[in-house]
Nucleic acid binder design. Structure first.
Lengths: 142, 142
DNA sequence: TCAATAGTTTAGAATTATTATAATGTAGAT
DNA sequence: ATCTACATTATAATAATTCTAAACTATTGA
């Protein structure tokens, strides 16, 4: 519970009103050892388990998007019909386990600096991200 | 029209019956200079323009997925609520223009070999793909 | 302290992308 | 020509997400 004050402060810092739903979401998302990868569905389940009062689905969507806009969360594109989010908002890469549909972080230091020789005129690079798809060793490839 | 025979042959080769819908889709997808990136929606529009008879939405989905399974098309994950497909099925990377939502191919030769130092025990790497997000030079970053 | 107000939450409806269903049609083999 | 397995079709169903409009609440400042 001592951590809640931090969340309230942090929410204020980025200009988000610290409502109880938002603070609760912060607890669920950031009171963890490791970074957390999730879909909206995962999060809704977790929240309904860990909360006494109900939180609306629309609020979960709103809040996740508010967090994303303010740099609290990062969206990861892997599967084209589900959004994955990541509490690690720094530039980094991912492994995607095609058996379990799990995302695993991969530090920038785990992959050599990526040198891109092609240029798009008039455009600047916003981000460079690598997705490494893995699967069980003894299985037919996708 | 001379190309249709090729499409019929190619469809047969991978074990797909060359129905008129499939041949028409081949024409629209592969009678091009460059590789083609599209969403189902793009394709439906193109088909309804270029066809005299109607093609069902379900058929477009079925056929795209049949083509994907047989290696005629490749799915690209960028945006988490739309599927993009690519007629270039070889291993390659992409630029994604965040202004126009356009995909641009990037040959493997345009990016130095990617060396991954991290390992997931019991898992083998299926693919390594880079997505480079670009945007207009004089614009606030996403 | 309390009212005003601007931003938030909510339930449910609406929308969008995609998949399933079941009847009809058609390609390829006999 | 006929049969059979596979394809196509319209439509319904589902899933993920967004919209809407009313009720609620955190903050401001009188």
């Amino acid at each position: 519970m001592s951590k809640n004050c931090n969340f309230i402060e942090k929410l204020r810092e980025v200009g988000l009103r610290p409502t109880k739903q938002r603070v609760k979401m912060c607890e669920v998302l950031y009171n963890r050892e490791k970074t957390f990868h999730f879909t909206i569905n995962d999060l809704v389940k977790l929240l309904s388990e860990k909360m006494n009062q109900k939180i609306s689905l629309a609020t979960v969507y709103n809040t996740v998007h508010a967090f994303e806009k303010k740099g609290y969360l990062k969206e990861i594109s892997i599967d084209s019909h589900k959004s994955y989010f990541d509490t690690n908002t720094s530039a980094h890469h991912h492994f995607f386990d095609e058996d379990t549909h799990e995302l695993i972080d991969c530090d920038e230091s785990d992959i050599d600096k990526i040198n891109i020789r092609k240029n798009i005129t008039g455009k600047k690079i916003n981000s460079v991200e690598v997705l490494v798809r893995v699967a069980s060793d003894n299985q037919t490839q996708k």
